[in-house]
Design a protein around this nucleic acid. Structure first.
Lengths: 151, 151
DNA sequence: ATAATTTCTAAACCTAACTTTAGCTCAAGA
DNA sequence: TCTTGAGCTAAAGTTAGGTTTAGAAATTAT
């Protein structure tokens, strides 16, 4: 039972499977902009269901909420996004995915060359240097087995 | 300058590039068991350098610290692990990696079949159901575009 | 012997992405 | 109208994997 004008947060939660608190959180992060009714309750567009779906999928692909917010900002501002708009956004997932697969395949090749020795010690260790995108914790250098950079 | 008997935590930090605090944290999580000298300071085996390397690599592969602890428990208890021991453990990475690649390739195929429509709405949406390993936040069901399970 | 490092512990803090709680207010149904 | 159920806000709590801080004790260097 959608409200006569605009959807309630509970209805969106029911339709998407998200928690009400999560939807409020997404709003706080700037991913949604509901308006308020006379009593101060949030009211959403039907199109926001699709928006939330996009958020859920993009998260599966490993995007952070700030990244997703940026993606969403490329949607038309003053009209309801069409299927083509969403299709364009989803296409961005494809290249992201290709890159991840390529990285993992390289890692697999490196691993095959490294697995027999048990040394865990390559100076430019493929096992350690690979896949840095997934591990950008920004904590200075680390090296393996004492292979310091020529101290 | 390693201590005469056992290595200091600072030396291990220097050799691995890890922060001293991280090494202490790993001990607290049960991944290392240094002994103490007369003054109460931690002393480590040389083999712990390799142990820390393994931890760093396993993290790159996406294992959690509890998972890594389990892996490490399969090492021999009362002798220094050999290269063969480490080699055996590293081999576990290979199957993990193969599984991840397979998952992503399936996701790519699903995405190709889904990207044109812009619907984000498949009842059993491949985009949403895929790659669940990376998203086990344990927060009840979620569905896309209102495709609730026959409510 | 003294100064400068290291190390020690416990507790607080950090980020991301949320959830939970407390105390109220709003809206919908009988 | 009265009573639930839904919604509101602000703040604190949660998890993972650590880092930072503070103050004291041990170790190393001069």
């Amino acid at each position: 039972m959608p409200a006569p004008h605009g959807l309630s947060i509970g209805y969106l939660a029911e339709r998407t499977g998200l928690a009400v608190s999560a939807i409020r959180y997404y709003e706080a992060q700037g991913l949604l902009e509901p308006w308020r009714n006379a009593g101060g309750q949030r009211r959403f567009h039907r199109a926001d269901i699709r928006r939330l779906s996009f958020i859920m999928i993009a998260q599966k692909f490993g995007f952070t909420l700030p990244e997703i917010r940026e993606q969403l900002q490329s949607l038309p501002n003053k009209r309801t996004p069409t299927k083509d708009d969403w299709s364009r956004l989803s296409a961005g997932f494809r290249s992201h995915l290709d890159a991840r697969i390529a990285t993992l395949e390289k890692l697999r090749d490196d691993l095959d060359g490294c697995i027999g020795c048990g040394c865990l010690s390559l100076p430019t260790c493929a096992l350690y240097n690979a896949e840095d995108r997934a591990a950008k914790k920004g904590q200075g250098p680390r090296y393996l087995m004492g292979d310091r950079p020529e101290t």
